[in-house]
Design a protein around this nucleic acid. Structure first.
Lengths: 190, 190
DNA sequence: GTCTATAGTTTGATAGAC
DNA sequence: GTCTATCAAACTATAGAC
């Protein structure tokens, strides 16, 4: 029955995303959020306990959004093609929004640690990745770590040295092939 | 003849490094730096024009330090071994100091852009990497980009998910072998 | 639930005495 | 060159009226 209340909460979070997209993740201020949603800063405390509570909601929402992406691998395909599709989905998502990527994958807000509740979707995403990797014969430890590092590196270099371009993202397929060769995935049959 | 002046400058920068190592890169404040060097905050303006000028000096110093590391490849060795040694040197350096790594390789200080002078050593380091890669038959464009992404990914994952540990850094050799295979470097002869 | 008012900090930077 | 004093501006958060 708190439909109106929930709508306000959503509006606040959406305004917060706008602010961090324009000003940078660390530059989020309650005043800027409040102004965008047509309120005064103190009014936000009726909906969130603190500024970090806003970050926390954003963190959870971002990972939930990623988790809810249409599964590119629900149709059974060859391991390499499936891995490639997964990699592209991850990289595209990470490269679409710097502030979101930083909030999800880096720890750059001093004093903010995600709550267990907000962290849950992130854990599920990684668990599913491990399941998938095991299903195609990979090691859920070292192999998955190398895979995540490979994608993280492409994303971070892309943002740091060619934001908006594709100098690193265009190498995603090549990187996945390199990885697939290293872990001994069978070559693709035509 | 400005020996004393130069010593003070050095002391300020050294104090600044201590602050960012303890408080985080973005948490640098003039007061904290001044206190550590036995001064008051306004006195720093006799040596640096602004807070960003301190960041700038730190940026230049960090890359100069890296540039001056003993060259692990001055003795000619096989390409794979040389690449491995370079990779370890880079990763070890990046994993030794988070704030330094962030300042050198990420753009996380809002409104700070390195001056041309401070940027010079960074450019030279990358140029040398390209030269080396060409000397062993690699492409200075795509191949170098993939290589830097690979190392950046290992470092960033290490810092983000296992700081102080070696879950990703222990895969450096494996990652380099994977890369070497992908770019067709000859296998090592015993 | 939202407002005004304000407490309480902290910050980078400047003015001017010494 | 270093100091004291201070400005001007931000910020999070709380108190209490409506």
């Amino acid at each position: 029955m708190d439909k109106r209340r929930e709508a306000t909460r959503t509006a606040i979070i959406e305004a917060a995303w706008e602010v961090v997209r324009e000003q940078g993740l660390a530059a989020l201020t309650l005043r800027a959020v409040a102004e965008r949603v047509g309120m005064r800063a103190p009014s936000l405390y009726s909906h969130f306990d603190s500024k970090n509570a806003i970050y926390d909601a954003m963190f959870g929402e971002a990972w939930s959004t990623y988790e809810a992406l249409p599964d590119a691998t629900d149709v059974p395909v060859q391991p390499r093609a499936a891995l490639r599709a997964r990699a592209r989905r991850y990289v595209d998502f990470a490269v679409a929004d710097l502030a979101r990527h930083q909030l999800m994958n880096l720890r750059l807000i001093h004093g903010f640690t995600p709550s267990a509740e907000s962290y849950a979707p992130a854990v599920r995403v990684l668990d599913r990745l491990r399941e998938f990797c095991v299903s195609i014969g990979l090691d859920p430890g070292a192999d998955v770590d190398l895979y995540t590092a490979l994608l993280a590196g492409l994303v971070d270099q892309q943002w740091a040295n060619d934001p908006g371009g594709d100098r690193w993202t265009r190498q995603v397929d090549r990187a996945v092939e390199m990885f697939a060769d290293a872990v001994g995935l069978p070559k693709e049959s035509p």
